[in-house]
Structure formats: structure tokens, C-alpha cells
């Protein structure tokens, strides 16, 4: 068991997965969309360590696999073999017909742009919508999911001023809008909104009053200056910024031997 792993041996992605895993609670329903390997690892880690009653919903496949030692999954999101572990499917009938129950659900979202109030963009980048400079993949189900789920996490594979921008060119999810704790309520959005934004450099949350993005912790070896230089807007910086807790030896052991034995999170 690797009890003596120092922070240098950890990849930022492993730190991200362990941070997210600790924030997930048993019995929650965790919805994981396409192309999110860090999130996949996080929910499986939480499931194995403290969430035997979690429901994992991967691309419509609902599963409880806490009794599986490892969980080989296809790398390709549309690969039908993911159904191997299913107990049922959320995609029989209308995938979105029971949104009234989604307060129990937790969701994770990426984005080509994210603004200081946690609004995100999967539509594209560029001033003219008809001829975008970068055309994104489209919103998938994120507008509806972010509207209704109890809470969600913004998880980014990289931290750069091109992604974390002052203003999204287009918004495909409404996080905290223009700011303010009542922003979502005023629009009638029932879900709890984004809780954290997690990147390879740091964890950010949202100020309770103005819902502006605030530095929560920086990963080991990352400086405040680096975070600020690579963020395209002024973050709220509290007087004390702790270092993100690294995985415990037990967490790391489970992560590396059962969740991610191929080492995907160390090669990103």
C-alpha cells in the first residue's frame, strides 16, 4: 500500500477526483455525462469508500457496483457495453420526465467557457453565432440538468484564461446568472446551482452573498499568483487559502488499484 506517496507523485487529476469524492454523500444519485474521466473516477471512488447506496448514472445506465472489485468500462461513451453493469436505464421513456425528483441528484459539468458566476458555455466561442470561431459540441442535457439538480460541480480538465472568462460568449447553463444569492430563485430555477468549480490548479466555490467565484483551496505546489495569472477574471481571494487536502493513503490505494488501475488520471 503506497502510504508514503508524496504530493509530487500525485497528479492534479487524482487530487481533483479525491476532493470531489469526499464531497459526495451516500444515497445520492450521481449523474455522469460523456467525456469526464475525472468525474467517473470520483464517483466510483466515493461509491467504494463511503457510498454503498449511491446510484451511479452513466449515460443513462443506472448502476450500483459497490461490490465490484474493479469496473472495466468502455472508453467510448456511446459504446453499448456500458450496459453490462446496469440495474435499469434512465433512458427508457422520457429521460427528463421526473425532474421533480432531481433534488436528490448530483451532476457534473465541463465547459468551453466558465464565467465568475458559474455560468457555462458548450455552444461555442466567437462574436458571430452564425460563424463561430470555435463551434462547441452543443448543450447535451446540461440546461435542464443544471436547472433541476440539487447541486452540481463544474469540473475543468485545464485551467486557463481562455476557459475561465469574464463573460461567456454564450451561456448554455445558468449558474448564478449576474450574481446574488437569489439569482436562481428570481428566475424560478428549482435546483441548487453550482457548488464548486474544480480545476487542475485549485478548487473554487461561490461567495454566499454575491455568488462570485472565490478561491477555496489551491492544490499542493500551486501558488496564488499562478491561479490568478491563469484565471481570466478577478477571483475573490479570502485572507486564508488552504492547500487542497491530498488523497489519504487509503483513498489513493483504492483510486490506483480499483478505480483507475490503468493510470488514466496520471496521464492526462
Amino acid at each position: 500500500m503506497p502510504s508514503d506517496v508524496s504530493a509530487q507523485d500525485l497528479s492534479p487529476q487524482e487530487i481533483m477526483a479525491a476532493f470531489l469524492a469526499r464531497d459526495l454523500k451516500d444515497t445520492e444519485h450521481l449523474m455522469v455525462g460523456v467525456a469526464m474521466p475525472i468525474v467517473e473516477a470520483a464517483v466510483r471512488l466515493a461509491h467504494l469508500l463511503h457510498g454503498p447506496n449511491m446510484e451511479l448514472i452513466f449515460f443513462g445506465t443506472r448502476m450500483n457496483v459497490a461490490d465490484r472489485h474493479t469496473l472495466p468500462l468502455p472508453a467510448f461513451a456511446w459504446d453499448n457495453r456500458v450496459v453490462r453493469w446496469a440495474e435499469s436505464f434512465s433512458d427508457t421513456g422520457h429521460r427528463f420526465e421526473d425532474v421533480k425528483h432531481w433534488h436528490k441528484r448530483v451532476f457534473f459539468i465541463g465547459g468551453v467557457q466558465v464565467d465568475p458566476h458559474g455560468n457555462t458555455n458548450l455552444i461555442g466561442v466567437g462574436p458571430d453565432y452564425a460563424t463561430l470561431r470555435f463551434r462547441g459540441p452543443g448543450s447535451v442535457g446540461t440546461p435542464t440538468l443544471s436547472t433541476h439538480v440539487g447541486r452540481y460541480y463544474i469540473v475543468l480538465n485545464s485551467h486557463s484564461p481562455r476557459i475561465l472568462v469574464e463573460r461567456c460568449d454564450y451561456m448554455s447553463t445558468y449558474g448564478w446568472g449576474g450574481g446574488g444569492a437569489d439569482a436562481r430563485k428570481k428566475l424560478g430555477l428549482p435546483g441548487g446551482g453550482p457548488k464548486y468549480c474544480v480545476t487542475p490548479l485549485c478548487v473554487m466555490d461561490f461567495d454566499e452573498e454575491d455568488k462570485h467565484m472565490r478561491l477555496h483551496s489551491v492544490h499542493p505546489g500551486v501558488t496564488l499568483e499562478e491561479v490568478q495569472a491563469r484565471t481570466g477574471f478577478a477571483l475573490t481571494i479570502p485572507s486564508q487559502v488552504p492547500t487542497t487536502l491530498v488523497p489519504t493513503p487509503e483513498e489513493l490505494h483504492v483510486l490506483r488499484t480499483r478505480v483507475d488501475p490503468e493510470g488514466r488520471l496520471r496521464r492526462m
Binding site: 427528463f96 425532474v99 458555455n121 455552444i123 453565432y129 448543450s139 442535457g141 440546461p143 435542464t144 440538468l145 443544471s146 436547472t147 433541476h148 461567456c168 454564450y170 451561456m171 448554455s172 447553463t173 445558468y174 446568472g177 428566475l187 424560478g188 430555477l189
Partner: peptide
């Protein structure tokens, strides 16, 4: 009617 997309750019684009 649908709620998902309220507050976003979808109705603008």
C-alpha cells in the same frame, strides 16, 4: 413549455 434553458442564451441563438 420547458424550463431547462431559461436564463441561458438558447432563446437568443
Amino acid at each position: 413549455p420547458w424550463r431547462g434553458g431559461v436564463g441561458t442564451s438558447l432563446p437568443e441563438v
